Deep mutational scan, measured.
Amino acid sequence: IRVFLPNKQRTVVNVRNGMSLHDCLMKALKVRGLQPECCAVFRLLHEHKGKKARLDWNTDAASLIGEELQV
């Protein structure tokens, strides 16, 4: 999953079965001084340019493999 972060940063996270978005993104956020409780995560909708859909931090990350997200 490719993730666009604040301050023009980005990362790619690996996903294993059973992991939530929170689990996958925790380290990437922590390294940058961010906390999931203070952030929202969105899936970028490529079929609708510029649109995005808000996701819950408990979403199964395996269902988002190959997607691009924005925090």
Rank of each mutant, 00 (worst) to 15 (best):
I1V: 03
R2D: 05
V3P: 08
V3S: 00
V3H: 04
F4C: 13
L5M: 06
L5H: 02
L5E: 05
P6G: 04
P6Y: 06
P6A: 00
P6E: 01
N7W: 03
N7R: 05
K8F: 02
K8S: 11
K8R: 11
R10Y: 15
R10A: 14
R10I: 12
T11E: 10
T11G: 02
T11H: 11
V12L: 07
V12K: 07
V13K: 04
N14Y: 09
N14T: 13
N14Q: 15
V15W: 03
R16W: 08
R16F: 04
R16I: 12
R16M: 08
R16H: 11
N17C: 14
N17R: 13
G18T: 01
G18V: 00
M19W: 08
S20P: 03
S20W: 05
L21C: 04
H22Y: 13
H22Q: 10
H22L: 12
D23R: 04
D23C: 04
L25E: 02
M26V: 14
M26T: 12
M26R: 14
K27D: 13
A28R: 00
A28T: 13
A28L: 06
A28C: 14
L29A: 00
L29R: 01
L29P: 03
K30M: 12
V31K: 11
V31I: 12
V31C: 11
G33E: 05
G33K: 11
G33H: 04
L34H: 02
L34C: 03
Q35D: 15
Q35F: 09
P36L: 06
P36A: 10
P36V: 08
C39M: 02
C39Y: 04
A40T: 12
A40K: 12
A40Y: 11
V41F: 02
V41E: 02
V41S: 03
V41L: 06
V41Y: 00
V41K: 02
F42T: 01
F42I: 03
R43P: 05
R43A: 05
L44M: 14
L44K: 12
L45F: 12
L45I: 10
L45D: 11
H46N: 13
H46T: 12
H46E: 13
H48I: 08
K49M: 11
K49F: 08
G50T: 07
G50H: 15
G50W: 09
K51D: 15
K51I: 08
K51H: 13
K51W: 09
K51G: 14
K52C: 14
K52G: 12
A53T: 13
A53R: 09
A53D: 11
R54L: 12
L55P: 00
L55E: 06
L55V: 12
D56N: 10
W57T: 02
W57V: 06
W57Y: 03
W57A: 05
W57C: 06
W57H: 01
T59I: 10
T59Y: 04
T59A: 10
D60N: 06
D60I: 09
D60G: 02
D60S: 10
A61G: 05
A61L: 01
A61M: 05
A61R: 04
A62M: 15
A62K: 08
L64R: 01
L64C: 14
I65C: 11
I65N: 14
G66S: 00
G66T: 04
G66P: 03
E67F: 03
E68L: 06
E68V: 12
E68Q: 09
L69W: 06
Q70G: 00
Q70K: 11
Q70N: 04
V71N: 00
V71F: 02
V71Y: 03
